[in-house]
């Protein structure tokens, strides 16, 4: 029972490996320029909604930093910041241990959209992209959103089952 948390982290790492080293070889070739299959991020959103926003934030920041370091091309930090921040904000708004499927899918859609927009913003601020916003929207933001939505649909049932088994830590309500 107590091993679930460790297994979750391990699972996220496996997803990280899959999205970088397995998926590009199996996705249809026409999709590849339009997709950033950030599978870890979808799982982080699940954690933020069904567990706690802080857990989501920490996982998002850590795996974002891992992504930044391993694929270091331009700078460190964008993924770490955006994934942590998005998970925190969405956890703050939607955190509900019994959230039904439509709510979770909305969270994934919103999260995916916010993530891509923030990344677009950061890269624009640092002069890395010259694309216009509407081009980016059509070329990769919406395909990303659909792909992550599909992935969330696939993993919803197994992940939900595991989270329901995991005992929520009984804690006093945050007083703010």
């Amino acid at each position: 029972m107590t091993w679930r948390k460790q297994i979750l982290v391990l699972l996220l790492f496996v997803l990280f490996l899959i999205e970088g080293s397995v998926l590009p070889w199996f996705l249809p070739k026409a999709w590849i320029p339009h997709l950033m299959p950030n599978l870890v991020f979808v799982c982080v959103l699940f954690v933020a909604v069904y567990r706690h926003r802080y857990a989501g934030m920490v996982l998002g920041a850590v795996f974002g930093m891992l992504h930044d370091v391993v694929y270091y091309g331009a700078m460190l930090g964008p993924y770490s910041f955006t994934m942590g921040f998005t998970a925190y904000v969405l956890g703050l708004i939607f955190q509900l241990p019994k959230a039904p499927l439509p709510v979770m899918l909305t969270v994934v859609m919103l999260g995916s959209f916010i993530l891509d927009n923030m990344l677009f913003g950061i890269y624009t601020v640092f002069n890395f992209n010259e694309q216009t916003y509407d081009w980016a929207l059509i070329q990769y933001m919406i395909p990303d959103l659909l792909f992550r939505l599909t992935f969330a649909l696939i993993i919803y049932v197994p992940i939900r089952r595991q989270f329901d088994k995991m005992p929520l830590r009984v804690k006093k309500k945050d007083n703010e």
Partner: peptide
């Protein structure tokens, strides 16, 4: 060994 499919980077 791995591919980053970020459009910007």
């Amino acid at each position: 060994v791995s591919v980053n499919e970020d459009v910007n980077n």
